[in-house]
Each structure stands twice: as C-alpha cells, then as structure tokens.
Amino acid sequence: MSDVQDLLRTSPLTGVLLTLVGYRIGLEVKRWSGNHPLAQPVLIAVLVIGPLLWLLDLDYEEYLNGGAIIAFFLGPATVALAVPLYRQAHHLRELLVPMLVALPIGTLVSVVSGMVLVRALGGDRALELTMAPKSATTPIAIQITDQVGGIPSLVAAFTIAAGIIGAICAPAVMDLLGIRDRRARGLAMGAVSHGVGTSRSLHDNPTEGAFSGLSMGLTALATSLVVPLVVHFLR
C-alpha cells in the first residue's frame, strides 16, 4: 500500500477535511439555490462525501477516524441549545402545560405508529425495534435501540432521515395543517426532527428555533422512557 493511501486511511485529517468540504459545498448550494428547502447542507454533504469515499476506496470506519471529531461537538451543541431558550424564556410559563401534555403524547404516537407501520408493511422485529426511537436525537436513539435490541447503526440513518425530512418539508406541512403559532411550530419540529430540524427552525425564526431545541431535549427524554414500555406491550 502506498504512503498516500496509508495516510488517507489512518489520518483523522481525511474525515475532518471531507466533512468540512462536503458541508461547505452544501452551504454554497444552499446559497445558489436561494435557500431552497431541498438544499439542506447535511443532505448535500452526504451526496458529496459518499461518492468521494467510494472513489478514494475508503470505508465508513476509516472516514469516522476524523468524522468522530466533528460529531463530538454534537454534545456541547446540545448544551448550547439552552441559549436560544434563555432568550425566549418569557414564552415558557404559558407553554408549560401544553408542552407537558403534547410532547409525551406526540412521542407515544411517533413510537407506536413507527412500529405498527413497519410491521404492517412487512418489516421484521429488528427493523420494528430500530424504527421505534427514530424521533429522538441521533446519539440518544442509538443508546435506546441498543437497549431494546434493534440495530444501533441503522437507527442513525433513520433519525438523520427524519431530521432531513423535517428540515425540508415540516414548515410547509405545518402551513397546510394550520399550525401557525411560532411556539407550536417549534415544539412540533423538535418532537419529530431533533437537531437537524432545529437548525432549519433557528434559521427561520428565533422563537421557533428555541422551542424546537427545547422540544428536542424533552422528546429525547420522553422517547427513552416510552420506547422500552411500548416494546414491552407491543409484541
């Protein structure tokens, strides 16, 4: 194996650089398209990085040598969601009861409908268990799936897909459904599309962004409590 190949495979530089370049191209495409909802930087980055990995003959594990360094910052970024929430704290008191009712119910609906639909459409038990926590943010969904016996690395793909769907079409769907209140829109976004959806909400409107971030955190909590229960009853 050549030295160059060796460097590509083992150095974290490869994964970090590919991620930054893919994301940068994603931002450019977003700008060129005049902020078209389909032009989500994370989606474009995957479409850029996937073929590049194939061309360079690198597998996902090798990419993650560097990719994990970027993904590490998901932790502090989750903590950082306290800041937009702090700026919107004056909305919080009025929303306390609606939130504490709607988020657990929304979570229950996500989990149960995901499992029932996978079963009805011919998926096996492992797939059903993997679909269950898909509304929680990626690292938490992975933990939950592992705990109930699904496929942890596949759930990452499901949660990211749920996030990207939300970033692309949640605002239009909520317009259609007549969900106009900024706080309700944020809470709904965070409940089904976690951080990826929250990033769209933060760009759309500060109130939506703050409530989406809060909703994402509470939904992660609710999902970790609801999934084991539902899995127990839905055999």
């Binding site: 409908s113 995901g114 679909m131 898909k134 749920a162 769907i165 769907v173 309700a184």
Partner: peptide, 25 residues
C-alpha cells in the same frame, strides 16, 4: 417498511404535537 414507517409516523408525530399545542393555546 422503512420509507413507509418513517414518513407516515413522522407525519403523525408532527401533526399530533403541533395541533395539540395549537388547540391548548
């Protein structure tokens, strides 16, 4: 099952959460 389960349950979760909050407000 993957696309069906993902899309429909995503929609159900979004609609239920958003409409419930709207209704309560």
């Amino acid at each position: 099952p993957i696309t069906g389960g993902l899309l429909l349950s995503w929609l159900a979760g979004l609609a239920v959460t958003g409409l419930l909050v709207t209704l309560m407000l």
